[in-house]
Every structure is written in C-alpha cells, then in structure tokens.
C-alpha cells in the first residue's frame, strides 16, 4: 500500500523558535491516526504546513500516488486536491443556514468563475441532505449555524468536511468541550469516515484517543517522539517523561 501523505523532514521556526524540527511522518490511504503531544509540541503548526497555511523553511510534503509536493500551493488548491481540515474552535459560517454551510463545502468545482455560474442541482441537494442526516442535523437544516449548540457546530464542521469528500481529513481536537454522549457520536462519525479515507486526529485528551483505538504518533518539541498503539506509546519512558516528568 503506497502512502497517501508523506511528510519529508520539514522544519519551520518562528523568530528563532523551532516549532517543527525535521519532522517526518507517513499517512496511509485509509484508517484513523491520532497525533498527540503536550502544548507547544507543534501539532497545529504541522496541520498549518500540510494545509498550506504556513510554508516550511525546509522539507517536502508529498501527496498521493504521484507524490505531488504541496509546499507552495495555496490553501484552496490543497483543499481541492482532497485535504479537509477541521479547526480547534468550531468555525462554521454562523450567519448562514446549516444547508448553506453544507452546500458551500460540497465537492463541486470551486474555482471562482465556476462558483459564480454554479447552479444547485438535485444531486447537490441529495448529497447535502444525506450528510445532514449522517451528522444528525437534518431537523436543523434551516436554522442558522450561529444558533446551534457547541457540539452541533462541531458536527456541522465535520459534516462540511465530509461534504468535501476529502481523501485525508485533518481534525483538530474534535472532542473539546463536548458532553459524553456528544463525544460518542463524534467518535462514531470519525470511525465511519475512516473506513473509506484517512483521518488524522490531533488531540491531547488521552481518554478520547483511547476511545478512537488507533495508531498513535506522539509529537514533542517539533519531532516524532514515539509511534505505535496507544498502549505501546504510553509505556514508552520518553513519553511518560514528557507527559508526567514536569
């Protein structure tokens, strides 16, 4: 099985602070993957680099079968290649309805001129409705996203990611601020999504990671500290040192 995403020794520093330090990582085409690490380990910066928000000082980010280098491409270009990202804070378009939010994310031609002359087809509608059903927001289609609860916003954002139909989903702390039933729903959503695509979850809540039951990568000070099953990495003395040692 060839890798979907291969991050090849990237480094980046801000004002002399090395946020990412010669980091290499490979993501398979399907399945869940969790990235954990203490604050400042470079988790969010890693996602910024992969999605094109931050340009690394050195290194390559190779994508897909053709090993295309993502460094230097615009965020929208990378997103259109099949990379979806969910932010830590739920960021949905609060002034627009759930339906409009989903419609915006649908995997359609998204170049400016195509959007300008786009028509919403029956197929678009069906896809939006299907996703709404999957994330459990079907009854709320006509409500403005700003009126939803925190958890609902998180699901809407995951729904928007699913609507993009990405090959790789990058999810930043999806469970933050959720109630226990909401967490379970979220876990289900992610697991189901991972059946057909790669899902990378960045998290520092160990409990949630355990629930995901997947391969775990531990980041520390901008580099990979350990990799393997959760039990494997939690028994690693370096990891224990980082998490408990100070």
């Amino acid at each position: 099985m060839t890798a979907l995403l291969h991050v090849d020794s990237i480094s980046v520093s801000f004002d002399g602070f090395r946020a990412i330090n010669d980091l290499s990582l490979t993501v398979e085409p399907t399945g869940l993957r969790a990235i954990i690490g203490p604050n400042g380990a470079g988790k969010t910066t890693f996602m910024d680099i992969v999605t094109g928000k931050t340009r690394p000082d050195s290194g390559r980010v190779l994508w897909g079968e053709k090993a295309q280098d993502l460094v230097g491409l615009s965020e929208s270009r990378i997103a259109r290649l099949g990379l979806g990202r969910k932010f830590q804070r739920p960021t949905v378009f609060e002034a627009q309805t759930v339906a409009e939010n989903l419609d915006l994310a649908l995997r359609n031609p998204r170049q400016p001129l195509r959007v300008l002359f786009a028509r919403r087809t029956a197929d678009d509608r069906a896809r939006a409705l299907a996703i709404a059903e999957e994330i459990g927001l079907l009854p709320h289609l006509h409500r403005r996203a700003g009126e939803l609860s925190h958890g609902q916003k998180q699901w809407l954002e995951i729904g928007m990611l699913l609507a993009q139909d990405p090959r790789l989903l990058l999810v930043d702390e999806p469970a933050a601020g959720m109630t226990v039933p909401e967490r379970e729903h979220t876990t289900d959503l992610l697991r189901r999504a991972a059946e057909t695509r790669a899902v990378v979850v960045v998290e520092h809540d160990m409990e949630f990671v355990r629930r995901l039951d997947c391969r775990v990568t531990v980041l520390h000070e901008g580099r990979v500290l350990a990799e393997g099953s959760l039990d494997h990495v939690t028994s690693n003395p370096d990891v224990i040192d980082v998490y408990l040692g100070r």
Partner: peptide
C-alpha cells in the same frame, strides 16, 4: 464572515 475557512473548503 471567515475567508480563511472558505479557503480551506477549497474555494478560490
């Protein structure tokens, strides 16, 4: 409302 978000949705 949030152009960065729209960008990550793949819109130019």
């Amino acid at each position: 409302d949030d152009e960065a978000r729209l960008r990550f949705l793949g819109h130019g």
